[in-house]
Design a protein around this nucleic acid. Structure first.
Length: 280
DNA sequence: GTCCATGTTCTTTA
DNA sequence: CTAAAGAACATGGA
């Protein structure tokens, strides 16, 4: 999402803001229209958050330098897509999709639209804060020790621990299931019983799974599309997620569906037998 | 009508 | 203190 959004947004000034009747902005009542006149310095991702970094206010007005002096405050507007959210680059003539909650008009003549049927997603004003509060390490760059430490402190099912954004930030239900299959570890394994070797394998599995998913453009089950409206392709590579009853691609055993922490969980009972693996 | 859904956050219960 | 379980949010598709 960030990669497709970035070229249409970075360097552009916000010239108008339109909002729908539902308040999807936190803190509640924050006026997005106060951002008119600000310029987008960068678009970054932290875990599941999309972060629009805005140039310092006084420098953004007028023909000012693109980058402020060292130490100048950069403000951040975060976007979380929840389950059904979309950020779309559009032009004013494009038909307004149902459930469009925010439209940011840019000086380039283009628009960024936030669309979200369920409204589990939303925008969040971080001000000068970094926008990474409450988040554990970034899975793509973490060291195994960063994963080992919080896992050693809990007896929760590994699945539940990995969905906890304070343990590791950015894994959702799809990618936890896929990473656990890749690591060949059962999702019900108590987090604090993993061996050092299992942690190492799990860390690697998380990285390869996410990297492959990003390269494929993400998983489109129903709603996800990038800023240009293109669906992802990784759903066709899922080994276990959504494959209940179908044969494991590795061993042909039927994929099982469990419920762990209230979340649908997909597992190959043959490949993911870590709980009673005598070698661990 | 039923069940399920890519996420987060709060409350209740133990 | 820990954590499990459930509910809540809101809409739509099968």
């Amino acid at each position: 999402m960030v990669r497709t959004l970035r070229p249409g947004v970075v360097g552009a000034g916000i010239v108008a803001v339109r909002t729908g009747e539902h308040d999807v902005v936190r803190p509640a009542g924050f006026g997005l229209n106060t951002l008119v006149g600000r310029r987008v310095a960068a678009v970054e991702r932290r875990a599941k958050r999309i972060l629009l970094r805005l140039e310092p206010e006084e420098l953004a007005a007028g023909p000012a330098p693109r980058v402020g002096p060292p130490g100048a405050p950069v403000d951040t507007l975060g976007v979380h897509l929840g389950m059904t959210g979309q950020l779309r680059l559009a032009t004013p003539g494009d038909e307004l999709a149902k459930h469009t909650h925010v439209v940011l008009s840019l000086c380039t003549g283009r628009e960024v639209r936030f669309i979200d049927a369920r409204r589990f997603g939303g925008l969040r004003w971080f001000g000068p804060a970094a926008g990474d509060d409450g988040l554990g390490p970034e899975p793509l760059t973490m060291r195994p020790g960063q994963l080992a430490a919080p896992l050693a402190r809990t007896r929760r099912a590994l699945k539940t621990a990995l969905l906890d954004q304070q343990v590791v930030a950015g894994l959702g239900n799809i990618y936890v299931d896929e990473a656990l299959f890749a690591a060949r570890i059962h999702p019900l394994t108590p987090a604090n019983t993993l061996s050092r070797a299992q942690i190492g394998g799990l860390s690697r599995a998380i990285k390869t799974t996410l990297a492959a998913a990003i390269a494929a453009g993400g998983s489109t089950l129903r709603d996800y599309v990038d800023a240009a409206g293109r669906a992802g392709g990784f759903q066709d590579c899922h080994k276990v997620y959504g494959r209940t009853g179908e044969p494991c691609r590795r061993c042909r055993t039927r994929i099982e569906r469990l419920v762990i922490g209230g979340r649908s969980t997909h597992v190959c009972p043959q490949c993911q037998r870590s709980r009673d693996d005598p070698h661990r």
